[in-house]
């Protein structure tokens, strides 16, 4: 539970910071960034899961976080160039994995609760 709580608090703090910061980027990149955000979210959920499973590895997490984000953004960009909505691939993959990770986190937390009872 604590892990999810940390992630949520972190996102909330980040949102506040983002709103306070005056920086914005060009709207043409918004699609790439939004796909990258999805990839990052997936990585964080994966991180939470691995932490709960006690096999969290900082290297795997970092490489996944940045690598996935960059790959997703690149796919979106490439799709734009080719005229094929390739970012769907990223959306389906990371979206699916997001729910998968969440399902596993739920199971771990529920199982743990039963154990402690």
């Amino acid at each position: 539970m604590i892990n999810l709580f940390f992630a949520l608090i972190g996102i909330l703090i980040g949102v506040v910071i983002g709103f306070l910061l005056p920086y914005t980027y060009d709207t043409t990149y918004s699609l790439y960034v939004s796909v990258a955000i999805l990839a990052c979210l997936d990585s964080v959920f994966g991180g939470i899961r691995s932490n709960l499973e006690n096999n969290f590895n900082i290297r795997i997490f970092l490489s996944g976080f940045f690598g996935n984000a960059i790959l997703a953004a690149f796919l979106a960009y490439l799709g734009d160039r080719l005229g094929v909505p390739l970012y769907y691939a990223a959306i389906f993959t990371f979206g699916g994995r997001l729910f998968e990770n969440f399902a596993k986190i739920r199971r771990i937390l529920l199982f743990r609760g039963k154990k402690s009872n």
Binding site: L8, G10, I11, G14, V15, G18, I37, V44, F61
Partner: peptide
């Protein structure tokens, strides 16, 4: 890293 995501989301 959650903070980082939050920053991106809010800028978006």
């Amino acid at each position: 890293f959650s903070i980082m995501i939050g920053v991106f989301i809010s800028t978006q």
